[in-house]
């Protein structure tokens, strides 16, 4: 698999491990209450699994397996994909820390904006690769 896919998928796996860990703490705390403040982990749990895990995995696999070009770089220019990778993951981190910092709501908004930009960059990359094989 190409290097960008490796980074996307391994980052997705780290997000999965982190998201499951936070989810386990939340559920443990629900069953056997330890510390009420743990509920503040809920937004990060959701962000890590719904965006960090599934999106990194989906984009990494898409970059790897979508049809390639016959001429030029087989997967086209790499920069929009790396831009998407960086923006997506900085966005996830910003959205995760939201409940823990005073300027949280702003950070979450910026994080979500970066995630949306990441989606745009990836769409720009993937659009011409959604085509019949051999074209």
């Amino acid at each position: 698999m190409p290097r960008a896919s490796l980074w996307f998928i391994r980052t997705g796996l780290l997000a999965l491990a982190a998201g499951f860990t936070l989810g386990a703490l939340l559920l443990l705390n629900k069953g056997l209450p330890i510390y009420p403040g743990l509920w503040r982990l809920l937004p990060a749990h959701i962000e890590l699994l719904l965006v960090g895990w599934t999106l990194n995995l989906a984009l990494g696999v898409a970059y790897w397996i979508l049809p390639r070009f016959i001429r030029g770089a087989p997967r086209g220019p790499g920069w929009p994909v790396w831009a998407a990778y960086g923006l997506l993951n900085v966005g996830v981190i910003l959205a995760c820390v939201e409940p823990w910092v005073a300027s949280g709501p702003w950070l979450a908004s910026v994080g979500r904006a970066l995630e949306a930009l990441a989606a745009g960059f990836f769409a720009v990359h993937a659009w011409p690769r959604v085509k019949p094989h051999g074209v």
């Binding site: 989810g23 069953g31 056997l32």
Partner: peptide
Amino acid sequence: PGTLLAVSAVLQWLAGL
């Protein structure tokens, strides 16, 4: 049921890891 939820949390966490 609280213990059941705690056990479930640990099992799913181990599965993910």
